[in-house]
């Protein structure tokens, strides 16, 4: 192990007698955890962003929630927060993860991405490790959000709530991967923010997060437009879960679409890390 042992004799074929690197190992889980722990450590030392991410849904909850309470019966819900909290969870998943790409650009500037890409770690582990950190942050934020909502009068079955929080966290995984992929492609904060906002805001508005978009509540063009937005179905799915219908077709569509988005996001993110010019 030390560099101070006497001169080493070279093998006859001139090859260095250095410990031969292990053959390709199954390193995916190991390397993902290494990247995850590193990212988590750095985030925990500077939790400002995570706390700011929480502030937004709590503000919505306290400043906007009361307005919804009298509307709930008209929208067909017994409890306004059963309708509203799923929307906030989706918003948390999307917006909480949207700007993680900024951190990645900073890391890229520091040379971290290149120094990770030159290791044998699978490229997917480099993305997934970071995404896991983001998912964990959103999970914690989701729990705090729901706990706060209980103070305001949320009434929903625990199993459904748990599924709702997990869905939001998975949505966060999809958007975090997207954010990483776009960040590493653009390599510029100035271009990243407007692009991600440009994608996220219409998606959010067309998902019926604040007020459900239905044939009854919206003009038909708006309703049709929102129907092609997977987020709308994911929000509806979480609403079904909050109502206790965790195996209804609405809920199943929600799970399915969430998983598809996560898969697409991770594929896109990994592809960017693999890209020779990354």
């Amino acid at each position: 192990m030390t560099a101070t042992t006497g001169p080493t004799v070279l093998e006859p074929d001139g090859r260095a007698p250095i410990r031969d690197p292990e053959p390709a190992r199954g390193t995916f889980v190991h390397d993902t955890l290494v990247v995850f722990r590193r990212a988590m450590r750095i985030s925990l030392r500077n939790p400002v962003w995570s706390i700011m991410g929480l502030l937004q849904p709590v503000l919505y909850l306290s400043l906007f929630g009361p307005l919804l309470e009298p509307l709930a019966p008209a929208l067909g819900a017994a409890n306004a927060y059963q309708l509203f909290v799923p929307g906030l969870l989706v918003q948390l998943g999307m917006f909480g993860a949207r700007f993680v790409g900024f951190g990645l650009i900073a890391e890229w500037r520091d040379g971290v991405i290149e120094s990770e890409r030159v290791t044998p770690a699978p490229r997917s582990a480099l993305v997934l490790g970071r995404v896991l950190r983001d998912v964990l942050v959103i999970l914690v934020q989701g729990v705090v959000l729901v706990a706060t909502a209980f103070l305001f009068g949320l009434d929903a079955p625990l199993g459904g709530i748990a599924l709702g929080i997990v869905s939001a966290a998975l949505l966060g995984a999809a958007f975090a991967s997207l954010s990483y992929a776009v960040a590493l492609t653009l390599k510029s904060e100035d271009a990243l923010a407007p692009l991600l906002n440009g994608i996220a805001l219409p998606l959010l508005l067309l998902s019926g997060i604040l007020l459900p978009i239905t044939a009854a509540s919206a003009p038909s063009w708006l309703n049709h437009l929102s129907d092609v937005n997977p987020l709308k179905h994911i929000v509806s799915g979480i609403r079904a879960e909050f109502a206790g219908d965790i195996t209804s077709s609405t809920a199943l569509w929600g799970y399915g679409l969430t998983v598809v988005l996560v898969g697409l996001g991770l594929w896109f993110g990994t592809r960017t890390f693999r890209n020779e010019d990354g």
């Binding site: 690197p21 292990e22 190992r25 390193t27 190991h30 390397d31 290494v34 990247v35 722990r37 590193r38 450590r41 750095i42 030392r45 500077n46 900073a106 890391e107 520091d110 040379g111 971290v112 290149e114 120094s115 990770e116 290791t119 044998p120 770690a121």
Partner: peptide, 21 residues
């Protein structure tokens, strides 16, 4: 360069080695 300004020196070195197994 290759280290993140936000990370600690020793940890960066160890994490890098871990990625090599």
């Amino acid at each position: 360069g290759s280290t993140s300004g936000a990370a600690r020196a020793g940890e960066e070195v160890i994490d890098h080695a871990l990625l090599y197994g």
